[in-house]
Amino acid sequence: MRVYPDQLAKQLTPLKQCYLVFGDDPWLCETTKTLIVSQAKRDGFEETVQLNQESGFNWNELIEEWNSMSLFASRRIIELVLPQAKPGSEGSTMLQQLMKSPNPDVLLLISGPKLASEQTKSKWFKVLDTDGVYIPCTTPEGQQFSRWLQTRIRHFGLNLTPDAQQLLYNLYEGNLLAADQALQLLQLLNPNEAISSEQLSQYFEDQSRFTVFQLADVLLNNQQDKAQHILSQLQAEGVAMPILLWGQFKELTTLLQLKQAQETGGLQSLWGKLRIWDKRKSLYQNALSRLSLKQIEVMLACASKLELKLKQQGIEDWTSLSHLCLLYDPKAHHTLAHIDID
């Protein structure tokens, strides 16, 4: 059964035999595991056994722990870490065997990195998911992050003005751990007073975390302020220029193909060929409705010049890359497209 972290508290009574905590967000993973362990201890699971599937790991250890009696005659939590989220053929068999012999005095808590879709279709996962709860701990973005932030603000009993909440959103989007630490600090500094954006700016630096793919999405949606913010953060984090240029070439080449197909009436057949599924289709449709074929060609030419400058002269031209991002807005083509970035 799949349950998201913000709904987990409602699914902990009664406890299931097994909990699967997989994801790429450290804060969500740790708080989720803590919530499960806390409930388990309230239910009498007093001992904790920790196992890690490192090199040379013996799966018989898990079977022995599952079947052995506790030294103190108390119920136990077995925490199993799968660093690669892959138990292998032996581990898969062992995990399936455990579920065939349920033990009410043992709670199995398995954790690891984010699962790929094919992993959630594997036999071991399906068996454990049937008898337990799967909690995907993926970093929330956009409106999901905003809801998470508001929930944590209420949790700490803070009174933030709307502009202060927006500033926190901008500072910490994509970094739940830093955001939560910031809120804890605010609780110490201003437990009862209203907190404005001016006060926040005195306390915190920008600690948001973004990816090249997030930059692509906001550009396709023409969210220029956010795009420039993400670009500056990627530069500050030391993301290599070739990676960013790769992302731009990928998106612009895709847009060019889609635009050419749109003008010839063959757009519908191209979505599947380019592996653009429904979740992202609207992003490309937004861009196609704004940009002309000529404008997309100008942007590709701009990206090519940036690549040549990087390869031939070793220059990482972040100003011109910012210029290229602005061109996702058709209005910018009238005032910026004529500027030569050489």
Rank of each mutant, 00 (worst) to 15 (best):
K10Q: 10
L20M: 09
F22M: 07
P26T: 13
S38V: 09
S38E: 15
Q39C: 12
R42I: 13
D43R: 05
T48S: 05
T48E: 12
V49A: 08
Q53M: 04
E54I: 14
S55D: 05
S68V: 05
S68Q: 06
A73V: 04
V81S: 06
A85G: 06
K86G: 07
L98T: 13
P102F: 04
L107V: 05
W124E: 10
V127H: 00
Y134C: 11
Y134D: 12
C137G: 07
G157T: 12
G157A: 09
A164K: 04
Q165D: 07
L168H: 09
L168P: 08
A182C: 08
L183I: 13
L186H: 10
E193D: 15
Q199T: 13
Q202H: 13
F210W: 15
L219F: 03
I230C: 04
E237Q: 15
A240T: 09
L244T: 00
W246R: 08
E251A: 08
L256R: 00
Q262V: 07
L267K: 13
S282W: 11
L283Q: 15
N286H: 12
Q295D: 11
V298P: 01
A301L: 05
L308Y: 05
L310M: 09
K311P: 11
Q312L: 02
T319Y: 06
S320Q: 04
S320H: 11
L321C: 07
K331Y: 09
I339C: 01
